[in-house]
Design a protein around this nucleic acid. Structure first.
Lengths: 410, 410
DNA sequence: CATTTAAATTTATGTACTAAATTTAGAGAG
DNA sequence: CTCTCTAAATTTAGTACATAAATTTAAATG
């Protein structure tokens, strides 16, 4: 008698295998007994799933039994470890002036990082996919990783992106051709697209100041303001990806537009120079207001300069209004300021903290990002890893590819 | 040999039983064959789960076989129907001046509705739970339903409520005692608390204009503005329930505070009267500006009155700014205006639709609610039903209570 | 009353788990 | 070097829950 198995029955195996994989990912080297405790499954089940995951290429069984030396009596436990090098992912940040790509293993450890200057405007359409290709190839080579070990690529762009990966306002980089499809077809990679601020939020919760924070706003506050919002640990997108857009600041008192900290620091610093203020900023920029950068203003202020300090006071007030208005509507536990100026912006926090209660009944905690320049590409890594982890049982690590044919319908 | 079964094994039965229940809830009278198509399960499984759900009290098997007459040949199919009267839920809206309670069956059909005037301010603490008790008892009696058939009660309040049901700013109704616990203990009901605008959003998506809309903003726009936000079909709460609070409007140009349509319609109407305008509003309020209501202003404007029309133009502009700023950040597909003024506010929509693109790049569709006064209590019904449906397999309908003892650990 | 037919039941299998009994791989004692 | 001890792996038996195919069943009808 021929019999079959319903999808619903295989669900149990899937659920348990996923739980095992999750336990192994964070757990270093684990024995069957430890996995029983971690998953609540019986030894027979744990071992059988481990064997299967080894066969699939996600786990490695270590030869070196009894390595940890926790015990010495009894039959040595089999020791399994998640194979961090089983597969890799690529995170790409397409900024206004440069592209950054990071290749990482399954542990999220960056194996290489490549940055190329690039203007997203005015680039012939047929060159664009090639640029992506080249930087990905460079990063892979530098990482010493083959293209077929890549299971997902996540790309961050400075535009709204819907849950389905459609880019709104595609007139810039994406106009008239589908990067996703092209790159995907060339290499067989799964390509994800996401908004850059959203990726920054993922990065910040993963490795930054916001670890364990489920209701989070990350502000990219460089030249322009943008925000990524996590609620209950989920990224918010809205109807067509616009969730977190800050255009409403145009009509907010004391804010007026969406220019960021870097923009106004430089602008207001220049104004002070032109007005003839006696300030350390003058020396820093060689008395040429046009070369004054935000970073110089922060440096002068840190050095006790009064004019620069005045610029930062004004900035803190402006940002308190920005963060206050967002926090009223969104009620985050924490707001992280990220982007190019994050390293300097720490000096704004005390004044902001003091003023934010004037603008919201639910003031959030404030912090600046410590993740630096790579925050978006790091978030892209996390985004790609999320995808691979969720679909691990449907994907085949390169290390297992030679066994795929042998496995067959068995 | 003693054996047991892991929770993970029972998962399959749970998943399938839940799928069956869901198929039955919407499906009217269904046969085994129809359920096989709906769930993808085999006949044996479908029938076995049906038998179990009948035993639990959620389904009824109809005596009247072959009622529909779709076919006449062959063995008559057993016919099952979800028992709408298996259990009931209560939805309560605690407003500023009155409390409304609706009792509904599992189909969501209201069986009774009771409203009591009540000021939430300045009421002795010990009276508050009693008020809730009394109105619930009234509504149950009017519905002809016993208290033990109630499986969940949802209460809407005009304050932020966290995911866990904690009320922020508890100084009003909730100060110094835990309604949830008291009501729950008295009757054994599961009591849920939620923000009123959030419940309105649930109602609007359930039975209103927003059916099928997953990214939705519902504005309660009576005397004060409040909003409930659904993203991907999920209610947003933020850290302590403040998601959707509109206090930031205080600093938005041309808005300035969170007063609602009713407030400003009456206010601006009075201003016109005091300024001596020749207007039909004068007759409607008996030449006493203090008795002028928003409703009179809308009526006069509909009647072609120029001064009242001017008030509404100003209102549309103000609301366009409100909706525009929210829509930029939240990017909903649809914004529904609800609350006491919704019935009249339809006349504001065309002007708002015209102006909103000035304030957001992602203008949503606009609509007014047709659900009227009961929108919050209706949303509370939906909220309670959501809870019961999710936990159906752990709850016992009253109709099955006599079988609970007999079932035992079997 | 036999035939037809669609559905319900029954029977045989298969997957995936748990629990208990048994075996096994090393460590250490005699 | 063999024996004992022990913790883990493996094997065996049993349970839950599903499918598929064979069989039975309950009307409708010629």
């Amino acid at each position: 008698m021929q019999t079959g198995t319903a999808p619903s029955t295989q669900l149990v195996r899937r659920v348990n295998a996923t739980a095992m994989l999750k336990a192994m990912r964070g757990g270093g080297i684990l024995t069957g007994t430890e996995l029983m405790a971690a998953t609540g499954l019986s030894r027979a089940t744990v071992i059988s799933i481990c064997d299967e995951l080894v066969r699939l290429g996600w786990l490695q069984e270590l030869e070196n039994q009894r390595g940890a030396g926790d015990y010495v009596k009894g039959r040595p436990a089999r020791r399994f470890a998640f194979d961090d090098s089983a597969a890799s992912v690529i995170g790409i940040d397409i900024g206004a002036t440069k592209i950054t790509a990071i290749v990482a293993d399954m542990a999220g450890t960056p194996l290489s990082r490549v940055t190329t200057p690039f203007r997203t405007y005015n680039v012939p359409a047929n060159e664009r996919a090639d640029v992506l290709d080249r930087i990905a190839a460079d990063a892979l080579e530098k990482a010493g990783v083959t293209a077929d070990s890549v299971l997902a690529v996540s790309v961050g762009v400075a535009a709204p992106v819907s849950r389905e990966g459609e880019v709104l306002r595609a007139q810039e980089f994406w106009k008239s051709f589908d990067v996703r499809r092209i790159v995907s077809e060339r290499h067989g990679w799964h390509v994800l697209l996401e908004n850059d601020a959203n990726l920054a939020a993922l990065a910040e919760r993963w490795q930054g100041t916001a670890q364990g924070v489920d209701n989070l706003v990350v502000m990219l506050a460089g030249d322009r303001l943008g925000s990524g919002i996590l609620e209950s640990g989920r990224l918010l997108h809205g109807h067509v990806g616009g969730f977190g857009e800050l255009g409403f600041l145009d009509t907010v008192d004391g804010v007026g537009d969406t220019y960021g900290i870097a923009h106004y620091a430089a602008l207001w610093g220049r104004e002070a120079l032109v007005a003839g203020a006696e300030t350390k900023m003058r020396a820093l920029c060689g008395d040429d207001p046009q070369t004054l950068t935000a970073e110089m203003v922060f440096r002068a202020a840190a050095d006790g300069d009064e004019a620069a300090g005045g610029v930062l006071d004004r900035m803190a007030h402006r940002m308190a209004r920005v963060v206050g208005s967002i926090s009223t509507l969104v009620n985050p536990e924490l707001v992280v300021i990220a982007g190019a100026v994050a390293a300097s912006a720490g000096s704004l926090i005390p004044a902001m903290e003091q003023q934010i209660p004037d603008f919201t009944f639910t003031p959030p905690r404030l912090a600046t990002s410590t993740l630096g320049d790579g925050i978006v590409s790091l978030g892209a890594i996390r985004h790609a890893l999320d995808y691979v982890e969720e679909h691990a049982l449907d994907l085949y690590p390169a290390s297992a590819s030679h066994q795929m044919a042998a496995a067959g319908p068995a």
